[in-house]
Simulated assay, not measured.
Amino acid sequence: MKRAIIFGVSGQDGAFLAQLLLGKNYRVIGVSRTMRTDSFHNLELLNIRNKIELVSSSIHDFRSVFTIMNRYKPDEVYNLAGQSSVARSFDEPFETFESISVANLNLLEVIRILKLPVRLYNAGSGDCFGNMDGQTACEETPFRPQSPYGVAKSAAYFQVANYRKAYDIFACTGILFNHESYLRPEEFVTQKIVKAACLIAKGQADELLLGNISIERDWGWAPEYVTAMWMMLQTKKADDYIIATGITLSLKEFIAVVFDYLDLNWKKYVKTDDQFLRPTDIQTIRANPGKAEKKLNWKARYNGYDVARMMVDAELKYQKK
């Protein structure tokens, strides 16, 4: 039985990944730094909380990471921890950098010092690329991050590349573009839209306030993306991959799909508010996931239009419970 440690197990990706690994007969150790206060809602929703060994630890703390890695000596480690909101990163740049970049360095250093034959997955982000003036990003595209979150993810990416080359550590970064699901918290705009639209449809709300709705993103379905994470660690040679659908749509289009699915005219309810504008923002994101399709045999089945409808279906389902 393979052993896998998931840092950030209580988040969207951590929960779906834990479910995937359990289905593959892994022994899953889930790490959370807020064991006493975390409700583990996502794990409960997937009915897997009692199937995971939950451990309290802070990935920010080197000694804590060292202790856990030395105790369990895992075959695979997935670093999905860290502050994950781009908007929030402007308000909390220090916490964002520490929770993403410094935490990732802790893992790499522990693996180097203990000389563990472990395979490491690092959660990268399409936000590393920044604005590309409509061009499509591939793995060779230079990074030009435009948020503290993007800067932190870029630093972690280069740390992985450096340790892989310098110390022959099997470490990969998945450069994941936007991926959503019903496990997303409401601070993410897709979930905010879906929850508000469902409330409006039930007569329990009458408006939705948003920032810039002209931005364009490549939105995918999170359960598919965690499969790509696992596949990266099954290859013979460690490498980095863009994970995306290859299909870009605007936030306005996403809104329209959600409201149309509920037989609503979004223009009657959606209003823009400057308080939701970011200091800097990426206007258009386009991604080429061709390398993952060619080398991993991974390709997204669902695009942003599908995601919008599936999130509505899930919201209506769980609202009834």
Rank of each mutant, 00 (worst) to 15 (best):
N162Q: 07
Q159H: 08
L17D: 11
Q283K: 11
L277A: 09
D61P: 07
K267I: 00
S214K: 13
V31E: 07
F143C: 15
A308H: 05
K320T: 07
Q319S: 12
G23M: 06
F62N: 04
G211L: 10
I213V: 14
N162E: 02
N25K: 09
D274F: 01
S57V: 12
Q12W: 01
I100M: 08
V102G: 01
L262T: 00
K153H: 03
Y149P: 01
S32W: 05
V102T: 13
G174C: 04
Y261R: 09
P148V: 08
D206P: 00
L54V: 08
K268V: 00
Q204R: 14
A81M: 03
R144Y: 10
R71I: 06
K317G: 02
S10V: 11
P145A: 09
E216Y: 02
N50M: 00
Y225I: 01
E98H: 04
P223N: 06
E216V: 09
P142F: 11
S39Q: 09
V257K: 06
S84W: 01
P289M: 03
K153F: 09
N303K: 03
I193S: 13
G23I: 04
Q19A: 12
Y318E: 08
P223L: 05
L199E: 15
L22W: 10
L43G: 03
D75N: 15
R49V: 10
I68F: 09
D127I: 00
S85R: 08
A287G: 06
Y305H: 08
D263L: 02
P142S: 12
K291Y: 10
